[in-house]
Design a protein around this nucleic acid. Structure first.
Lengths: 222, 222, 222, 222
DNA sequence: AATGAATGAGGCTTCATTCAT
DNA sequence: TATGAATGAAGCCTCATTCAT
């Protein structure tokens, strides 16, 4: 390891320790001392890498968001159709949260409510990342895959809101458990997308409702 | 004003001041001294009414949630149809947030991320309040108004998540502005509900789920 | 009960409550609120009777010391011989402590270390009370019952010191238990008095002081 | 001075400052700020060394008691005879109090009345130290130097009680003054010891205990 | 005479941050 | 580059005490 690499490695160690401690106790209740302990360094060393406690907090997403973005871009390139892309996009996000619980906690429970975070490089990266979502919506509307009367902002809100709500619940309550957490995303996204798809375009309609209904609801009715 | 009333009035004044200050600066950055000032009392008096700073925070929702619940129950009694009820329920919530911005801030940006809040009387009230939502979903499914294959938890997540997301954005960014904020709720709810309505019932569109699923999975494989 | 008596009764109730609370938690950790509770009154009422918390503390001994003094004077009048009087005096003191544990705690553990207590009416009463002890010592020396070479101050110190030490131990440790506590006083006083009695006078033992001294000094030399 | 030594030196400085301030104003009326001032440090530094104000208080005796113990053990090794040892033991204690007035104040006026102090390392050291006294008493009784009918606990109480009483008086009243304070100890100890020495053993006086007892009881009856 | 209610004053304690080594 | 040690700044909370009723 070169000196440069060693420095980078330690920085990452600090960030991971910080994510863990912040996730566990919240920003205010976490102390630099605790983070230093968890990172195996001294408090002073942390200040060699980050100017302030809040600066450290705001640096946590830089790596993960970059990573998530690259993953998303890699996968999305292979997928056709706006609906499918959106499904994948949301799915990858949830998957990422599940695999990086500390980061998810920091992002959902701490950063999302910090006004100063809005002026941050990390927040800019997140905005950039979410533009992908907007593009996909636009793509779906342009291509006719989605109904033309939907409001992109609303779809975005519903999609991201649902993700956030589910993730926050998972983080706060531990329910549903890790496996179920991912399993639920598919039908949820279905429901969302169903509401916006252009039925003519998909060519699925006219549907024989009675059949579907019988199929699926039959049991319920009896 | 009797002595009892005066006490109650002062308590409410403190709670309102606390909501305002907490909303403005967050829990940790708010000081009791500031709240006392805003309430026109001394710090010590606040401790005559609330045992701790956090206890004060946790008491803020008690009044508003009660009020919101009564409003919702009053209106919902007059509405027929699960979809319409849900629309009204979500709308009333947003309306209430818009009219009680401080309370909304405290709830969305502070309390939602506090684990200890979960064990609170106020949180219990919120859970009770949201049961109304669950009942409405069940009602829609039982009556056949909603498709029977939706997962109630998911619908709940999407609905509340969207509300929270929109509200949080409004609080954090000031966008969209107050008027637009309410205006957007109608189409958003439409979109959501459209995804779950039973098409036979509404006579609009038969969706073929199997195809969508196939399509989706195919995409993932590529 | 006349009004005057009722007032007096309440005052006593407050003093007893105060003794109890002070004894249990010490002066600083006791609160007026607690004392008011224990006395069945309000805090404000306590201030109708006593000007300050410390004034209340300083008033606690007034009754008990008066009572102890009267008891002592009554009994001592019946006893002949300085040694016997001293024994009785010390015994009555211990008996009183045992029967008034809260008062003993307040006196031994709180008041004895308070410099301001020295300027107090209650302290003056205690000094007066202890003059009885000095008189008895003088009586014993004058009559020849005690050796003439003892230092009255020293005897006083040893006698009172032993009492205080035993009482303090009892209060702090609960050892020895209540019954044993009294039982031990007799032999202790014997030991003390034995050291000061004039053997010629009592006809028991021709104590050759010079030899004892020699002996003692001899020991040092070896 | 190495870093380690500097730290130790500062710790001692804080302890000395604390002893001084606590001695002067009592525990509750002393402030950390004052102690910090007296020690030439900041308040926060004190908390780097001691967890709480009370923890600081409880740490004060650690050094002095250790020192006193070593002194006592050194001197006692050179002395023969239980009476002489006891005299030396008590004398060294008083001498130590006189030379460390702040420590004496803290011990006699503050710590002795604190129940929590009983569970302290420092209190354990004191108990260990006083075991020396118990051993000496036992030694005197085993060797026949002391009468066999004395109760060791009582002798201990009388000895320590007298010391405490005299010391407390000196601390509270400033009387007798420093020089006299030490001068009085010799005759006081003589008096004490005279009461317990075995006269047969010393060959001085056949003390007829039965008679004394009779005498005493007779007095009570009259 | 009794008290419910209000408050001024102040201390302990915590940490983020700095700096000399 | 790393850190042990020091500290300034600040806030929560407690109560003795007062006063209007």
């Amino acid at each position: 390891m070169t000196g440069q690499e060693k420095v980078e490695a330690r920085k990452i160690k600090i960030l991971e320790a910080a994510a863990k401690v912040f996730a566990g106790k919240g920003f205010q209740d976490a102390t630099i001392s605790e983070i230093a302990n968890a990172a195996g360094t001294s408090e002073a060393t942390i200040y060699d890498y980050f100017a302030t406690k809040e600066g450290l907090l705001f640096s946590i997403p830089l790596g993960p968001v970059q990573q998530l973005r690259e993953t998303a871009e890699f996968h999305l390139r292979l997928i056709k159709g706006a609906a499918n892309k959106i499904r994948a996009f949301l799915y990858l996000q949830l998957l990422f949260y599940r695999n990086n619980r500390d980061f998810a906690s920091v992002l959902m429970l701490i950063l999302k409510q910090n006004r100063r975070f809005l002026d941050t490089q990390a927040h800019k990266m997140i905005r950039e990342f979410l533009k992908i979502f907007d593009h996909m919506i636009k793509e779906g509307m342009d291509s006719g895959e989605f109904r033309s009367d939907i409001d992109p902002y609303l779809l975005r809100s519903a999609g991201l809101g649902a993700i956030e709500h589910v993730t926050t619940n998972w983080l706060m309550l531990g329910q549903p458990d890790d496996d179920e957490f991912l399993g639920m995303i598919d039908p949820m996204i279905d429901t969302l997308i169903m509401g916006i798809q252009n039925i003519e375009e998909t060519g699925i309609c006219p549907l024989e409702l009675s059949k579907i209904k019988k199929n699926k609801t039959g049991g319920d009715k009896k």
